[in-house]
Design a protein around this nucleic acid. Sequence first.
DNA 1: ACGCCACCTGTCCACGTGGACAATGGCGGG
DNA 2: CCCGCCATTGTCCACGTGGACAGGTGGCGT
Lengths: 208, 208
Amino acid sequence: MRTPEPLLILTTDELLAERWQGLADRVLHGRQADALDAWRRDGHRLVVADLGLGSPTSPLWESAAWKRSAHGLQILAASSVPSEDEGLTLMNAGASGYCHSHGPLDTLRQALEVIASGELWVGRALLSRLLRLVDSRLPRAGLADWSSGLTDREREVAHHAAVGESNALIGDTLGITERTVKAHLKAIFEKLGVEDRLQLALRVHGVR
Amino acid sequence: MRTPEPLLILTTDELLAERWQGLADRVLHGRQADALDAWRRDGHRLVVADLGLGSPTSPLWESAAWKRSAHGLQILAASSVPSEDEGLTLMNAGASGYCHSHGPLDTLRQALEVIASGELWVGRALLSRLLRLVDSRLPRAGLADWSSGLTDREREVAHHAAVGESNALIGDTLGITERTVKAHLKAIFEKLGVEDRLQLALRVHGVR
DNA sequence: ACGCCACCTGTCCACGTGGACAATGGCGGG
DNA sequence: CCCGCCATTGTCCACGTGGACAGGTGGCGT
């Protein structure tokens, strides 16, 4: 982040290429999937891909070839005419971020920093819509009800265990003995009716 | 962004206060809403508020007083035990960001930069779940994609293991030796880059 | 025919896990 | 004031797991 990572830009738009050239190591005209392969082979990860004015969900992005090429890369998709639908499609197709092509350069730079660090980027417009959609339409049942009946400490331990941390690690991060972690887990298993930390993980993450 | 903005930290957790003091101008123990008013009167905007271990949806955050005080401020809510539910509630209650209290400091710093620039911050775990929830008919890359590269048999074994079955059981149902199951799992772990059947389960079920 | 690969099986061993006995201190309600 | 709940820690042990050595078969392409 401090030292900007090599960045590949894919676009067919002359103006955008010019506009963005300041922050990229390499600008390619086109959207060839093989360019992605080459980029990855060179050990790089960061890519900005311009969608141009294509159909809202360009078939290119849904092709198996694209997904295969995009795998392992962190791609910031930029659209000239951002839409909820397009954003969703692209993010679900494996993109790490989605932004407006003609937005401020600073925003683009920030988005790149964010996805370079392994997080995801979605602009505030789309994100706030997502939040409202989920909040209004989806019943809360099953989202967080697993923790009902657990004490605060148990909830905490359960959360750590559910993401694959070992008892020793959990105890270490919580500042307690491994033995105590096991005691909490015992109670957790009992209360949730599971007998495994794996079953716990599935329960916590809402599987089945 | 380049010149860090004044930052107020609200927490009741000693360890967190110590951990975060490096990046704050002022650390307050407590969660008083009037502290927010004072902060805004001084012309500041940035706040990190620790939720502690309160109930998933602490009543404090839903009170009218809190919302009034939080208005105009950019608040990053930090939870020790993040959950979908809590994140949704807080973001919809006016928070600008939601993150894990014990996450890396760099991530926190980045989140602060992002919300300082007027955007919203949601960690990739919650965000990816939101995306999947909203667009659930499209199996997200990683949900149907985890099995790419695996052989048919490996896919089969992986599926059984990912729902919590023991090696012996898997071998039994597939009509092979437990030893063979372990061999398959070895290959699976290798190919997927995990080292655990729990990590495998999370991967298979699209968690993280 | 040779090599590659998917599939199958064997033994040994270090390690983490979960259960079965325990015990102590604190804190709030009846 | 005692009882119940919570958090904490202890030892011992059976078991499943995953890694590290091994191998053996059959199919498929050059």
